[in-house]
Design a protein around this nucleic acid. Structure first.
Lengths: 216, 216
DNA sequence: GTTTAAATTAAACGCCTGTTTTAATCGGCG
DNA sequence: CGCCGATTAAAACAGGCGTTTAATTTAAAC
């Protein structure tokens, strides 16, 4: 059926791969059209601009991921929340289902997210929050239920530390995976990394609250 | 005394600020020389190339930070290691002493580290490891002593998650601090954030090892 | 004060960027 | 077939990049 891809899809597939590897700004349209084997001008013809292409690439993944995550969080809320791991585990399924878009979809999406945060892509953050801000809020609410012993402020900071660890792990995931491979022969797909990440994050989030005096 | 800065220092000061904010590749020499109010060609005159400038910027911070950290870790090793918090706390002093280079030195250094990892700066990693690899190894060794229940691979990954959370927390620390201030009246200096970070990181690093079966 | 090296400057180099323009080609329909 | 909108193609655009060159200015040594 879908043997011969349309130009638009060839561009999207090449772009997401390169964006994930190198970031948005460091990837040129000539790289993309070269890898996709299409004419340079076709990007502007089909998408209008590079910025619009970036949004189209993200949109395809967000549209798959966010509703699924929201669904799982909602179900969990109704069943009652008992642990942090439970909430974090809601991410696993939706992340893996991204492989329906691309066999490497999980890695690509997380890596794209990382670049979207670390690069100054204001339009992207605005776009994401406008469309999926309610999912972020639901996530925070779930975390509050899982950690009633934490103050809102502490939870706020810890969830941002969590985002940092996750994003960073994926952006530098490939490089780290190569080092790990060389050092002690341990491969690591995105799925592996997520699996390693969850216990770490859950323990960090749920750590006992400490007073300011407990320092060195 | 040091009222009028030499061109070389004006370049370094402007460059570290811009590199920390935007990353290395996305910062142009014209941005740097414009902010430093020096001639474009002076970068290549004083440093030779952009790559050499990047290394010079990192070198100034590494040279201040690494020996201090090494010293503290060494002392701790001799006294005996009992907890992960202990090891992490060795970073606090050296990080804060970076403010002697620049009032925002702590944030800048951690941000530079983040970009050095996420961008493909092979020459930087090589350079760092050649000069300060022994500090990294000492740190890893201390962590192994503090967490004898963890495998080498698990510890490797968790320490990188830790770096990610730390870097991200500092990079977006100011913006987050403003949000936190608005939401629940909580101020946060770089030192405060490090204080909030350590219990989180220590709990994450020390979390019980889990088998691959424990998934959703 | 003259000499000499170091430092600064302006200008240009070749290459790459995103975008636009203009022309050629394709595919379905009457 | 001939048409005609949709798509592809090649070329050029203006502007930014790191780097280099050559001329000028600065500043210290004699």
């Amino acid at each position: 059926m879908a043997k011969v891809l349309k130009t638009k899809d060839k561009i999207l597939n090449a772009a997401e791969r390169l964006f994930a590897d190198q970031g948005f700004e460091l990837t040129s349209l000539r790289q993309i059209t070269g890898a996709a084997d299409v004419n340079l001008a076709s990007v502007n013809y089909h998408f209008g601009s590079k910025k619009a292409l970036i949004q189209a690439v993200m949109e395809r993944y967000h549209a798959q991921f966010m509703p699924e995550l929201d669904e799982r969080l909602k179900t969990l809320e109704e069943e009652g929340i008992n642990s942090t791991e439970e909430v974090l585990s809601c991410f696993v399924g939706p992340l893996l289902s991204l492989q329906r878009i691309n066999p490497l979809g999980t890695e690509i999406y997380l890596s794209l997210l990382g670049h979207a945060y670390s690069e100054i892509q204001g339009h992207l953050r605005r776009f994401t929050m406008q469309n999926f801000g309610h999912v972020v809020q639901r996530f925070f609410h779930c975390m509050q239920q899982a950690n009633p012993h934490l103050s809102v402020a502490t939870l706020f900071w810890r969830l941002h530390f969590t985002l940092g660890a996750t994003v960073f792990a994926q952006v530098s995931g490939q490089a780290l995976s190569e080092i790990a491979q060389a050092d002690f022969g341990e491969s690591a797909t995105a799925e592996d990394i997520v699996g390693k990440l969850i216990p770490y994050l859950a323990a960090g989030i749920g750590a006992a609250e400490v007073s300011a005096s407990a320092r060195l």
